[in-house]
Design a protein around this nucleic acid. Sequence first.
DNA 1: CAGACGTGGGC
DNA 2: TGCCCAAGTCT
Length: 377
Amino acid sequence: MAAGQTSQEPDRGAAVPEAGPDPAALLGWYDAHRRTLPWRAPPGAPADPYRVWLSEIMLQQTTVTAVQPFYARFLARFPDVNSLASAPAEAVMQAWAGLGYYSRARNLHACARTVVAEHGGAFPASLDGLLALPGVGPYTAAAVGAIAFDLPAAAVDGNVERVISRIYRVEEPLPGAKPRIRALTQALVPALRPGDFAQAMMDLGAMICTPRRPACGVCPWMGSCAARAAGDAETFPRKAPKKAVPSRFGAAFVGVRADGAVLLRTRPPEGLLGGMDEPPGGAWREGDAMPALADLLQEAPFAAPWRPAPGGVRHVFTHFRLELVVFVAIVATDYAAPAGMRWVRRADLARSALPNVMRKVVAHGLEFAGRARSGVE
DNA sequence: CAGACGTGGGC
DNA sequence: TGCCCAAGTCT
């Protein structure tokens, strides 16, 4: 659609919805068009709270496509809350490596242990009980409550914010509009099938009421949508302008043993990539350009014949861009790991808790080491 | 409450 | 390339 003007008031002449959105109409659409997802119980079957909770945590700020393989592997490895609670933290971080937002994994593990220690292994069936669990906020508590326990809770995620802001043409930008959107949503939650209603709202947002080019022509609520009537659905929800993301620069040091093993350490438990593995690295400094190689080399974790691998590694985080020079040094197989670090054999790298940015660093360093050893450079 | 917190895909 | 987006939570 044409985006239309961005600062308009409701058109006096525009068509106006004849009635409010009907939850039953949405449920009817859901029964016919619902997505089949691995964490979803078949129609009419009760949902497993553990699986619902696990999927909701994984899906926070993460696409269904990205979650699917992680969910399958994770569930195979930790089939129930007891197996997760009794697992070591490293195993959980390893299973989460690559999914991002690693505090979710820490909180997931803490949550499983809380459920086992304080709730006898059963998830609390109340909103307050769920909300008290680590990593469970207003959205997740409502989603698990509605889907797994039939609580008439409003699970308001990004999909629902988009759907509701269009239906009612909410002019206030996010995040300020959240309380209003939540109240508007809560008023629609049906006493029967609240879990299906929650999932229907998400499917509607994901399949029909999409951020760009919404398929208003096949929407079960098209007759009740103020934005559709005004022809500017795509401009909702209104959002506060974003800030520019700064760049940071630094060095990573990939120590490679003659037998191919790589030197890794584990990051501190809190903060960026908390609890995840990495090759040792220097500080990441904000700026406009990469510091001189000689300056970066000052931060080498130990003395070795460090050489910069051509190209480096770029990565984009939510709040900054990162550019790393990857220094590589090949050392003897009997070289002892410095304090706080360990040698990880090539075959074991896949089972380490390397976040993707650090996987890129290791791959880049190993590629250069391989070429250097075969004398191809 | 604004900022921290990953990653990959679409356009 | 760059910007936006995706089932948020915690501090």
